[in-house]
């Protein structure tokens, strides 16, 4: 058996290759080569197409560091990512707790499915749906004026809060999902033991529940923070003119200004930031696994 195992291991790659090669070739052509090409292009003065002259340059990166605009926008995007992540924790964690520890059986299953269902539906359409709620004369405005005795104007459309609301709506199911998975794994007897030893509810929460569910919180935070920092469609639709962020500037380089090398450099800087963040989060995530 042991000998057979060793032989299988040596011939493993040869047997595995025909099954593996198509998928990984595809990933190489459509993901890994493009990412490498992006790095390459970010050091060019122009696209090497149609015989246009080009040369290697550090100018695209110099542009990022010399013009405070890009750095400011990157910081604005990081702040947006942080705020949205915090709101998702505040809103999503309690919901995950109720799902994992209060609800039981079929109602838990049904509600869990309801929470994560919108998250798998079209993100663009869900962002668009907020336009109808937030604009002046929209549902929020009409409802508030119907209830309140005085006249108020609620026009959140094209503002920073609108962008936050839309993004939190898009990403909060992630936080519920990851926190629910870790909260569900906590043995109820640990909580009971803490309580019977005289700890208050708050102490149990702080000393037992939160530390044990930390990996879920961190996983959720990473899964939310990274795409939010790179978001551009949500700020464009809900933020209007106030919705200029790092992602929208990258979009502009590719679809409006057509400065692809600069866009590639900006994208690569974003990728580097994202990788650093994932690296920081990974020890906690590994501990969970």
């Amino acid at each position: 058996m042991a000998v057979e195992g060793a032989v299988a291991s040596r011939s493993g790659l040869r047997s595995a290759l025909p099954l593996l090669a198509p998928a990984y070739l595809w990933l190489t052509v459509a993901i890994f080569l493009p990412l490498s090409a992006m790095v390459f292009f970010s050091f060019m003065t122009d696209l090497p197409l149609a015989g246009k002259p080009w040369a290697f340059t550090l100018g695209n990166y110099a542009a990022f560091f010399s013009q405070s605009l890009y750095l400011t926008l990157l910081l604005a995007s990081l702040r947006l990512g942080l705020e949205v992540t915090l709101w998702c924790v505040v809103i999503g964690y309690p919901a995950a707790y109720v799902l994992a520890k209060v609800l039981k059986g079929r109602s838990r299953e049904a509600i869990f499915l309801l929470v994560i269902l919108p998250f798998w539906s079209n993100g663009l359409v869900r962002i668009f749906s907020w336009a109808m709620v937030l604009r002046e004369g929209g549902i929020l405005d009409t409802a508030a004026n119907a209830v309140l005795p005085f006249k108020i104007n609620i026009d959140l459309m094209y503002s920073y809060p609108a962008v936050i609301i839309g993004l939190v709506h898009s990403y909060v199911p992630y936080m519920v999902l990851t926190c629910y998975l870790t909260l569900q794994a906590i043995d109820d007897s640990l909580i009971e033991a803490g309580r019977s030893l005289g700890a208050s509810r708050l102490q149990v929460l702080r000393r037992v529940i939160i530390p044990l569910s930390l990996p879920g919180l961190v996983a959720g935070a990473a899964l939310i923070f990274v795409p939010v920092v790179g978001s551009f469609m949500e700020p464009r639709i809900l933020g209007g003119r106030t919705g200029t962020f790092y992602g929208t500037v990258i979009e502009d380089q590719f679809v409006a200004v057509f400065n692809w090398p600069l866009g590639a450099a900006l994208s690569f800087i974003l990728l580097a930031v994202v990788l650093v963040i994932l690296a920081i989060a990974s020890p906690v995530l590994k501990r969970a696994a």
Binding site: L33, P34, M38, G247, S267, V274
Partner: peptide, 27 residues
């Protein structure tokens, strides 16, 4: 390593993947 390679396409923001594809496919 091959299993780890599956995560960049999921974890990297689509904005980066999308623009990288545009550059490469054009090139």
């Amino acid at each position: 390593f091959l299993q780890a390679l599956l995560f960049p396409p999921i974890a990297i923001p689509w904005l980066i993947t999308g623009t990288a594809m545009l550059i490469f496919f054009f090139g």
